[in-house]
Design a protein around this nucleic acid. Structure first.
Lengths: 260, 260
DNA sequence: AATAATTTTTAGATTTGCCTAAAAATATAA
DNA sequence: TTATATTTTTAGGCAAATCTAAAAATTATT
């Protein structure tokens, strides 16, 4: 049996390894878990004992295949719960992290797969993060940071790097929820701030920081050659989410603001 | 802050007080929690410290108003989650207790009320147990044990006293899910076993034990005077669950087998 | 390479929740 | 009412998970 504390450490190690692409250090884990290095060392011994991590004193840790599997399952659970909270229970995307943090530890009885089924096998959570499938396979999207767009590019909001409530609420205010369309109109060289047109036609200016924390998928490259053309929301969604439109109910996308 | 262990003890004390209608004893709590009397004493001190119970050495305990409120909220959460698991995620009624036991401890952010709203403010859980509302008010039904029926009585299954998976699965096999109609045809004096006709016309014999663990609501007293009359499922439901049929979606009752 | 700075580990405590065994209180029976 | 049985509490320990402070190892700097 694995405790909740152990599960949380596995997830933290997974997250760090994903970003750093090398062994996670004690300090990095302590920072991620908001605890002390001493506590981390204690826990690393326990996890190594259970063969969930490879641990060598002073050398940092890596997940074993088994640890990786567990961490992936946890992230799957976390994100599926987030989908339920947002799409079924009506929570805002900035309200669900804490709750999902608790829900992900609920064990047993094929719950995850039933949840997955009920939600229609979503591939991305309400923040645009991928949800691994039952076999641990991840979905990917060709997304880039808003800041890397070229002036004139059209794009659709696909995710966030910063998951803070402050940022998510700011995006809500700017009408930049997942699926929102935008066009980069201008980049001010002075501070790298960006002027964009949003889906509803409004023009707003975003800081460089926003540009570095918002993921978008560039769209309609072809259209600029052929001139304006109207795309059906269904087609846009299929392009955006890389999957068969027919196979999915319309439910999941009801809250998204695809243009307007 | 209150721990999960503390919450579980509160719930146990509530359950015992409900049945016994007097102060819950240390041993009774130990039995309910499947632990030792010594552990219970430890915990009782802690709960008394937090003013959740009135505790006098050797005299058993009672919930304070605050403790009662917490216990009621827990039961509300537990049963709402059970409704979600059965009606939305497709679990059977004998599979959900363990999961709800975990889910009831998830805290925060108006989750319970959103869940309640999503489920359509159900008043009873999948086993027929009442779900207190947000203010802690309970719903009641005029139900009796099947064993107390008189020969010739017609009734509808409304709940169970024994919540064991074995009993629930047995009921499923006998087509005696919540909402199932039945008529008591005969009571054998030898062993008090009961011959009944179920909603689909089949005749079966049930042991005395079943009769003492199955709650039913007597129906159609008037009809015997007026002869057979067909009732709409909607009307039956309204009678059975004591509420406005129109106000509720049909969803919640889809799995019920009202006759056929 | 030696010293300084940083990171990591160890040592020793603490809290929660649980246990067993023994003592104390209460209830039951002769 | 005294003896016996039962219930409850106390005492002492244990394991998980955390902490602070000090020691050890590693990394960076001169």
């Amino acid at each position: 049996m694995i405790s909740q504390a152990e599960e949380n450490y596995l997830k933290a190690i997974f997250k760090i390894s994903e970003k750093e692409a090398k062994a996670a250090t004690t300090n990095a884990i302590a920072a991620e878990m908001q605890t002390t290095a001493a506590s981390v060392t204690d826990m690393l011994k326990r996890l190594a004992e259970k063969n969930l991590i490879d641990y060598e004193k002073y050398r940092g840790v890596q997940l074993t295949p088994e640890g990786n599997k567990l961490a992936t399952a946890l992230i799957r659970k976390h994100r599926l719960w987030e989908v339920l909270l947002v799409e079924k229970l009506g929570f805002a995307w900035d309200e669900v992290h804490e709750l999902a943090e608790q829900l992900e530890h609920v064990q047993g009885n094929g719950l995850v797969d039933r949840l997955d089924e009920f939600l229609g096998h979503p591939k991305f959570d309400p923040h645009g993060d991928p949800i691994p499938d039952a076999e641990g396979r991840w979905s990917f999207r060709q997304q880039v940071l808003l800041g890397t767009l070229k002036v004139g590019d059209h794009a659709v909001v696909t995710g966030v790097d910063d998951h803070s409530a402050a940022f998510l609420q700011y995006l809500d205010q700017m009408h930049l929820a997942l699926g929102a369309q935008l066009e980069l109109l201008e980049r001010f060289p002075y501070d790298q701030s960006l002027r964009i047109r949003t889906g509803n036609g409004q023009e707003i200016v975003l800081s460089e920081k926003v540009g570095q924390n918002l993921y978008v998928k560039i769209s309609w490259e072809a259209d600029r050659d052929f001139g304006k053309r109207i795309m059906s929301p269904a087609f846009l969604m299929a392009q955006l989410f890389h999957r068969d439109v027919q196979r999915r109910g319309g439910k999941r996308f009801a809250p998204l603001q695809l243009g307007k």
